[in-house]
Design a protein around this nucleic acid. Structure first.
Lengths: 188, 188, 188, 188
DNA sequence: GATGAATGAGGGTTCATTCAT
DNA sequence: CATGAATGAACCCTCATTCAT
């Protein structure tokens, strides 16, 4: 028999709790990865387990809420007429950890339609940037969106496995590799 | 109440148990990843949990024993005069899952000296191959061992995150990316 | 922060909510049994949890409201001059699942006066039918109301434990058993 | 990181714990029904949750262990040359509560082969008794094993829903009903 | 030394019940 | 009066790790 509430701040706390949960999840996912315990999220948000499940029935729902902002940022980037694939890599590098959990989610839950959808939104951005880059001759013609997506995933992974202090160097190295890989060849 | 030892083969089983544990761990890590339950390893080896902990005080000790063979194979490969970086990528791709656990271990336990040491041995192989490839002009001069190591890790990661059916395609894609990235430039 | 009531239809919705709750509870109890979560009832009724508790302070109060209709139907049946015990069994069999929850409630909450009262109403119906049947020599003289009530409860139980596909067969079997048990004996 | 053992009585406690678990389960199932929390069983046995799961990977495995004795008793009864169906009902009545949980398990888990097997063992006993009774003209020829099994299940249910004080009366009533239902008719 | 059992914390999830608005 | 969110206890199950024999 449950029911021994200490502080019921009432429904007005709803939206605030939701925001707190998203913020907590963002932090927890960043620190401990996408598979961090959800109880840690609730605890950090200062919210009961039940409330977490009310707002987000499962891990993916929570992740979608967390990452939606990231993707929206990315889409905004893609909408800028001067955006390049290089900017995509920049963005991923900058968001380093957040992106890592995002990518982890997209790949580990790849059979969930919601995760799939996020992946598609990223792919759409990449696609657009890629077309523009190729139109300007900045990227080799044979490169396809899947190449870019795979590279982004690998970049995110590499950063996730790197100590924060070394991340800039690793990001730089990886981005150079991909830049070289995608650069138009002299003979092309 | 008298003791009732059923199948205690006694101390003589020591080395045999050790081998059985390593073989079991290899299989378990391959099937369920580096963080598979150790109890599964003991069960599969037909050995008590206690014996597992006696032989291998922690997960890393066990992993080191498992992966030592893999690395030895790799070193053998590196010792062959005709070995190329491309072979390294081939080997990683072929071992797909096994290497995945290896890479997972090396990166997730990167602060453990034992894991570090395994990484260094791989790096030594890569270093040797790279030097040879560069001497033959098969790899651009600016490429360094860290580039190769990062690429190998990323390749292994990509494969680990891919459904088995799609692995060949992803391996092909990733290797092409790295091949292009490391290819000597016309202007070089 | 101003209040932001979205769809609070206000006090006027009182009776409508009550009816919605009863209908929802009937459906939920039928689908998931008497111990289905009350939250499911509120959700299905499109009503807040709080309102549910206001109208029905506990599970039994809700169940009583739900089953009152069933019993009323039964009483109507009992009032018909041609009604027989066999019809009672028919009715129970037909309501299969619904009755199952009813019986479940009456027996599991047998110490609650409200549940008791429902039981008594059913017993009154059975009593009346039995008297008529015995007057016509259709039921053995030694049979008493408690025999009928026990049989009804056992019938409902049997149906509740049976896969839907097999219910007709089980109902048939059980009713035959009770018919034989209650039939007047040659020697009587 | 678990591991803060207070008292490790060692492997020798294994069989004792197993027995304690079975005894505890028997008591808990008897008091709170087949769906009582397993944690209560572990607690009552004075054993960690983990040990419970080690001995009995799931609720059914535990129940099988608990009820095996009951069924063995029943089979012993069936093997006696003078055993009758009436004795089966007696036995069920006497074991009242234990039988209740048994029947509950067999019906609620009817798709699990282990539960099915227990059911079949009971049916075999019933079958044998029934044949004998019919050979002696003590039971009507048209009665089949399924009739008996259904009756036993209904009897067990009725007892489970009855307060201990009233059980003898209810048992008597139910047994009389079934006796009448199965009695050979004068016209047969 | 090997064995295999024990332990208990931890994470996921569900739900009855309360309460500010 | 209605709303709908909050709470937290309880259950299930899994594992890392220890220890008597």
């Amino acid at each position: 028999m449950p029911a021994n509430p200490k502080t019921n701040r009432g429904p007005s706390a709803g939206p605030a709790n939701r925001r707190a949960l998203i913020a907590a999840a963002r932090a927890v996912f960043a620190e401990d990865g996408f598979s961090a315990p959800l109880s840690a999220v609730a605890r950090r948000a200062g919210v009961g387990q039940g409330s977490l499940y009310r707002h987000f029935p499962d891990r993916i729902a929570l992740a979608v809420a967390v990452f939606d902002d990231n993707i929206t940022d990315l889409e905004a980037l893609g909408a800028r007429p001067d955006a390049r694939i290089a900017d995509l890599f920049d963005q991923v590098s900058e968001q380093a950890i957040g992106s890592t959990a995002l990518i982890d989610m997209i790949t580990s839950e790849r059979h969930d339609p919601r995760a799939e959808h996020l992946g598609e939104r990223i792919a759409a951005v990449a696609d657009r940037m890629l077309a523009r880059d190729q139109a300007h001759g900045r990227i080799a013609a044979h490169v396809v969106t899947d190449d870019v997506m795979l590279s982004v995933a690998m970049l995110a992974f590499a950063l996730s496995q790197t100590d924060p202090a070394e991340r800039p160097a690793v990001a730089e190295r990886a981005r150079r590799i991909f830049r070289d890989a995608f650069a138009p060849r002299a003979r092309e």
